[in-house]
Design a protein around this nucleic acid. Sequence first.
DNA 1: TCGATAGTTCAATAAACATTGAACATAGGA
DNA 2: TCCTATGTTCAATGTTTATTGAACTATCGA
Lengths: 123, 123
Amino acid sequence: MSRTPSHPTREQIELPMVLDCLSDPIRLAIVYQLAQQERVSSELCCGDFNGLSGKSNLAYHFAKLRECGLMLTRVAGTNRFMRLRREDMDARFPGLLDAVIKSATRDADRLQLLTECETVEAS
Amino acid sequence: MSRTPSHPTREQIELPMVLDCLSDPIRLAIVYQLAQQERVSSELCCGDFNGLSGKSNLAYHFAKLRECGLMLTRVAGTNRFMRLRREDMDARFPGLLDAVIKSATRDADRLQLLTECETVEAS
DNA sequence: TCGATAGTTCAATAAACATTGAACATAGGA
DNA sequence: TCCTATGTTCAATGTTTATTGAACTATCGA
């Protein structure tokens, strides 16, 4: 548990893996919340997502998001801070992340995504 | 095998199902080829994809693409003609299909997608 | 040093998925 | 009518996936 986990390089990021990652409701909700934080240029840590599932299940999904190149994990003390790899995504797949997040926002109700306010309340 | 299969209405189309459909290499290749045909406003039938996999496996993937709302099947004689549900996709998820297809085009080599010429040759 | 907190890893389970071949259905042409 | 071409459906297979709880590791603060 010691050190910052490995991430793929930009060129190693594969479209099918990214789409598969985004197709899971829990991972989509994670990405959605990370995208909200992006706008205030701050990060979230694992605990901020406790509302979505249990700790070990979240760790599983975080690993998938890391491995496919969608997000980056930075270790600080006992916390792991996470953010989207926005620049890499936009470079590899221009417009994709924006389209997904915009679509998710429009469908927030049926996807049961937490709004920004609810996220803040939960934390 | 009698009649044209059922498709979801525009409003029934769900983002996670669409992303999951697009995350499979074979289905992505199918969507990619359908997008090429779109430009010359024509359709493709099942046999045009025989290079991708066996018949029964393709039928399985076609069904998934239909059920998630990505494409439409029209029965004509012993053939099934297929096309993307472009307007429905653009209405529900603006920019998403374009971003995916553009990204797939850029990665055509590593995704082993057939080019337009190769598609024509194969048929 | 002790305890609490934050998060990961592992093993087990059930469900979903992709792939195959065989059997089937339908339509069109000889 | 029979044969062929086109595609679907079904059952069987092995693989991957998501989820759970328990055990573990590491860090921080008292």
